[in-house]
């Protein structure tokens, strides 16, 4: 279980990084925390010609608040964000979800943006980003563009990132802090979720619900609070729409049944939290 050969480059700036990406295109892989990519290299299921190591880029190692959003740079680890003192106040939903992301040891290296880039349909950070209507900031030699989470994640481990683009940051909106809840069902603590449900109250009238692990990407639903009284029906409908999929640990049917059961619990928790 040893990686194939590859060129390794460690640029000194994001500018250099995007220059390397421009040169190699999809033959390059960006290495940040490496918690997924390195395992794939060891298993020889990934074969990049060049690895672009951005973990040391100071300019991407920041958490800042601007324009009603928390912007997290691409070198920020999951634990850095988890331990950020303002997280609970500004992004309580993300604060609720981060403890479910891998383990202490993997969060020490795994980055927030890396998780978003990896785009596993059951992973927590992309789910929260989608549920909150966040954004992904992409930079290339062609310029910088900002994509809504819903436009960024396209399917199972598939995103809208062009081969020459570097994810430089993710932005999490901070306006919904009143009533949040997050739950997931996983086989073991720290495993990828079989299903995950996130909910937050937008205002007096509406609720946002994010669902991970059931479709090929996070599903987001806006609902009037009034439906929460009958969340069962809503999740029944969602379960049918999203269908679910089979894997070793869960069938599509089990995923739907879990959603039917866990969903209303999460909505109730969010409403209780808001009250």
């Amino acid at each position: 279980m040893k990686p194939r050969r590859f060129d390794y480059v460690r640029p000194d700036s994001a500018e250099e990084a995007v220059a390397v990406l421009a040169e190699y295109g999809d033959a390059a892989s960006v290495l940040a925390g490496g918690q997924s990519l390195m395992a794939m290299l060891n298993l020889r299921v990934a074969e990049p010609a060049v690895l672009v190591d951005i973990a040391r880029l100071k300019e991407l190692d920041y958490i800042r608040v601007a324009n009603g959003k928390v912007e997290v740079g691409a070198a920020v680890t999951q634990n850095q964000l988890k331990d950020w003192p303002e997280l609970g106040g500004r992004l309580p939903l993300l604060a609720a979800a981060l403890p479910f992301v891998g383990h202490f040891q993997t969060r020490n290296r795994g980055t927030v943006c890396g998780s978003i880039a990896h785009a596993d349909p059951s992973s927590e950070i992309p789910l929260v980003l989608a549920a909150l209507g966040g954004e992904v900031v992409l930079r290339s030699q062609r310029g910088t563009r900002v994509l809504a989470a819903a436009d960024f994640q396209r399917g199972v481990m598939t995103t809208a990132r062009a081969p020459d683009e570097l994810i430089v940051a993710a932005r999490f909106p901070t306006q919904w802090t009143r009533g949040v809840a997050f739950r997931e069902v996983a086989r073991r603590h720290g495993d990828f979720a079989i299903i995950a449900v996130a909910a937050c109250v937008e205002d007096r009238n509406t609720l946002r619900i994010g669902i991970g692990g059931v479709a090929d990407r996070p599903a987001v639903q806006h609902a009037p609070i009034s439906v929460a009284a009958d969340a069962k029906d809503m999740f029944e409908k969602l379960a049918q729409e999203l269908e679910g999929y089979d894997d070793l640990h869960a069938s599509a049917r089990l995923r739907r049944d879990l959603l039917r059961r866990v969903g209303p619990v999460v909505v109730e928790e969010a409403l209780r939290c808001a009250a």
Partner: peptide, 14 residues
């Protein structure tokens, strides 16, 4: 069940 992500050895939490 070819990896430790598929073959589930319990952690302390289990």
């Amino acid at each position: 069940s070819g990896s430790f992500a598929d073959y589930l050895v319990p952690t302390v939490s289990e």
